[in-house]
């Protein structure tokens, strides 16, 4: 244990045993990705339509901004443990925490995407005879798409972190390695688990960053 813990972590990762079976790295990674995708998806189904509505009409904006602000102040670990005690073991409790914590980013992304459209452009589109729905889908959403994806990116980062903490109350995912290591005073294993989570988070973040760049509307960025 007194040797360099990072070398120990590499040894841990290099052990072929870690790469197979129901608690192997591939399965834990898949679990982690599954939680993240499910959490972001459910949150998006709720937050994106609300955000688009708020952004397009300007109604309830104060309420949305306020709610997002309060939700941001909620401690992740607190929600995870609270839902675990209230709802019990299973997928529902962590999912509730994921959705609650993913909503602020998605809501802010959706309404700022719509709001970012130049009011003069929107006015011109209306004057040409576009319906409100056409203005939303053909002008505001395409122009704000990268901000919307930015919201998805923020939510994803948040849920990846939360999914890791959910392992503390018995869920699967890569957080398991950290908490097992913590329980057995195995610092190299904690480091290995941490590295895996970091790699996953960075890969997802970079992928979404790339998507964000790709969805920036042509014509509005320098060619």
């Amino acid at each position: 244990m007194n040797e360099n813990p990072f070398l120990g972590a590499l040894d841990w990762l290099a052990d072929p045993m870690r790469w197979s079976g129901p608690s192997g790295i591939p399965v834990r990674t898949a679990e982690h990705l599954g939680y993240t995708a499910l959490g972001v998806l459910v949150a998006a189904l709720i937050a994106v339509p609300v955000g688009l509505y708020v952004g397009h009409t300007g109604r309830f904006k104060g309420l949305a901004v306020g709610a997002a602000g309060v939700a941001r102040a909620l401690p992740t670990l607190g929600l995870v443990t609270l839902f675990a005690l209230l709802v019990g073991i299973g997928l529902t409790a962590p999912l509730l925490a994921f959705v609650t914590l993913a909503i602020p980013s998605l809501l802010a992304g959706a309404y700022s995407a719509v709001e970012s459209a130049d009011p003069a452009t929107v006015d011109a589109a209306r004057a040409q005879g576009m319906t409100e729905w056409q203005i939303l889908t053909r002008v505001e959403i395409p122009l704000g798409m990268s901000l919307l994806v930015g919201g998805v990116r923020g939510a994803t980062v948040q849920v990846v972190a939360t999914a890791m903490l959910a392992a503390y109350v018995g869920s699967g995912g890569l957080g398991r390695y950290i908490f097992q290591g913590l329980g057995s005073q195995d610092y190299p294993q904690m480091i290995a688990g941490s590295l895996l989570v970091i790699v996953l988070a960075l890969v997802l973040d970079l992928a979404l960053l790339l998507l964000q760049r790709l969805t920036a509307p042509r014509g509005t960025v320098a060619p």
């Binding site: 972190a161 950290i178 610092y187 904690m190 480091i191 970091i198 997802l204 960053l209």
Partner: peptide, 23 residues
């Protein structure tokens, strides 16, 4: 941007090994 994508717990775990503080 990338730094912000790193969850906090892994950072709390890694730092002691890097800067010599206790976990």
């Amino acid at each position: 941007g990338l730094m912000y994508a790193i969850p906090s717990l892994p950072l709390f775990v890694l730092l002691p090994g890097l800067i010599g503080t206790g976990v």
